[in-house]
């Protein structure tokens, strides 16, 4: 079965991203397909490569990036929400004159439009939302 997962909250303050991660991992282990993971609202903050959590804690961003790499996940960060919150890829950083090296999107994530959320809802058999 094809699942789409929506993450509405950032890392650490809310459990939403952790629960979504565990759900996604369990779905993959059961042989389901993850059509897309979409990050919206503060959920875009899961995609910054600049977090440096203590070494004995989970690294939420890294967990997602590694899961994406291992399973070729499509992890999409909403562009409008990302711009409000300072999550930039190379193209966006350049376009908004934020200076070289200011792109902070982590591996495995890509920035795209809200249409990707609707499309995931259309294409997936099930859409599961995690938030506050």
């Amino acid at each position: 079965m094809k699942f789409a997962v929506v993450v509405n909250e950032g890392p650490y303050t809310h459990q939403a991203s952790d629960t979504a991660y565990q759900f996604t991992k369990a779905a993959l282990e059961k042989g389901h397909e993850i059509y897309r993971v979409f990050f919206y609202h503060d959920g875009v903050n899961n995609a910054t490569r600049l977090t440096v959590p203590p070494q004995d804690e989970r690294n939420v961003q890294k967990n997602w990036s590694e899961l994406a790499e291992k399973n070729a996940l499509d992890m999409v960060v909403c562009i409008a929400a990302a711009q409000r919150r300072g999550i930039l890829d190379e193209g966006e950083a350049k376009r908004h004159g934020k200076g070289e090296g200011s792109a902070n999107i982590a591996p495995g994530f890509r920035i795209s439009g809200l249409g990707q959320l609707i499309e995931a809802g259309i294409q997936a058999d099930r859409l599961v939302v995690f938030g506050d």
Binding site: H41, A80, G115, L117, I118, I122, D132
Partner: peptide
């Protein structure tokens, strides 16, 4: 919270589908 506003933004974008 931002949820009402950003929900409305999804509705507007989603209308094109």
């Amino acid at each position: 919270t931002v949820y009402a506003l950003e929900s409305l933004e999804v509705v507007l974008i989603g209308a094109a589908f």
